[in-house]
Simulated assay, not measured.
Amino acid sequence: MDNHVFLITGATGAQGGAAVDALLDKGMKVRALVRDPASPAARQLADRGVELVQGDFDDAASLATAMRGVKGVFSVQLPPGREDTDSELRTGRLLVDAARAAGVEIFVHTSVARAGDQTQFVDWDSGRWWPDYWNGKSGVNDVVKAAGFPHWVVLKPAFMMDNFIPPKSAWMFPGLQDGVINSALRADTRLDLIAAADVGRFAAEAFAAPARFDRQDIDLAADSLTMGEVAATLSRVSGRAIESRALNGAGARAAGSNPGLVESQQWANVEGYQVDLATARSWGVPLESFSDWAGRHRDRFSFGTG
């Protein structure tokens, strides 16, 4: 990739970190936008040869500095908070504006499967399914597409496999450390799953071959499993007994699940990510099965009673 520089946002998180890994594997020059260059996670990036630029999504001046000389940008934003409902759209727009002003050629944005379909969801008109989340996701997608980049790609991953390992698992599945997956997912509900590493690999391929991926919305999932199948896989790879319990909403909340998370699981029962796995694989970018992913992360699991 010669001396082209690629800016990665969210580089200390799961998807941004995976993009860093994939780009470095291809020998690309990586710059990371970080809030605190002195943090342990940021220092680990620097030790691998990643250039650090201090900045914040809400600081337009710092975004302009980070964009200097950049050929491509990997974009990921945090979902809106309950008290700052337009945060994702606001910060996404600021990042896009900075990239366009700097003449960025390739903009790869990661969103979520079904973003843009939300008005078709069952009970959408009644205000169900956290509208701010879905409108923020689809809104940033629209901003990216309308910005006028020479090349853009919107990746739309389903549920992250990485949510089953710390630190995410402590919030997503609080009973998992005790060997139980409590959720409001029905026993027969299949959850579409993707590894963060695969999102990173898609981003790297898009940067390497922008014309091939140009102007594409790409739904991403490698497996579609019930929680019973997830528990069985985790039991097998860890050697510990993991149980799955399908609870109603009240039961899931009583078991420690966040109300917003319970609503998301109930959404999966009714709507779900609906990723076409064959289409996701048709791009020729290897996608990791949940079984292979779990085996690769065996040492990171912390759960079960043995």
Rank of each mutant, 00 (worst) to 15 (best):
S75Y: 06
S75D: 08
S75M: 10
S75N: 13
S75R: 05
S75C: 13
Q77F: 01
L78K: 01
L78M: 07
L78Y: 14
P79Q: 01
P80T: 01
P80C: 02
P80H: 04
G81V: 00
G81S: 06
G81P: 02
G81N: 01
G81D: 08
G81Y: 02
R82F: 13
R82N: 15
T85W: 02
T85Q: 08
T85V: 13
T85I: 12
D86P: 00
D86E: 11
S87A: 09
S87V: 09
E88L: 03
E88M: 11
E88K: 00
L89R: 07
L89W: 08
R90A: 10
R90I: 13
R90M: 11
R90N: 06
R90T: 14
T91I: 11
T91L: 14
T91P: 11
T91Y: 14
G92I: 05
G92L: 13
G92K: 06
R93E: 11
L94N: 15
L95W: 12
L95K: 10
L95M: 14
L95E: 07
V96C: 03
D97K: 10
D97F: 12
A98I: 02
A98P: 06
A98L: 03
A98V: 02
A98Q: 01
A98D: 06
A99W: 07
R100N: 13
R100S: 12
R100D: 10
A101F: 02
A101W: 06
A101K: 09
A101R: 04
A102R: 08
A102S: 11
A102W: 04
G103H: 14
V104N: 02
V104R: 01
V104E: 03
E105T: 04
E105N: 01
E105V: 02
I106E: 11
I106K: 15
F107V: 07
V108I: 06
V108A: 03
V108K: 02
V108D: 00
H109D: 09
H109Y: 13
H109T: 10
T110E: 07
T110W: 03
T110N: 07
T110Y: 08
T110S: 11
V112C: 14
V112A: 09
A113E: 09
R114K: 05
R114E: 03
A115N: 08
A115H: 02
A115I: 00
A115W: 00
G116D: 00
D117N: 11
D117I: 10
D117M: 11
Q118L: 05
Q118W: 04
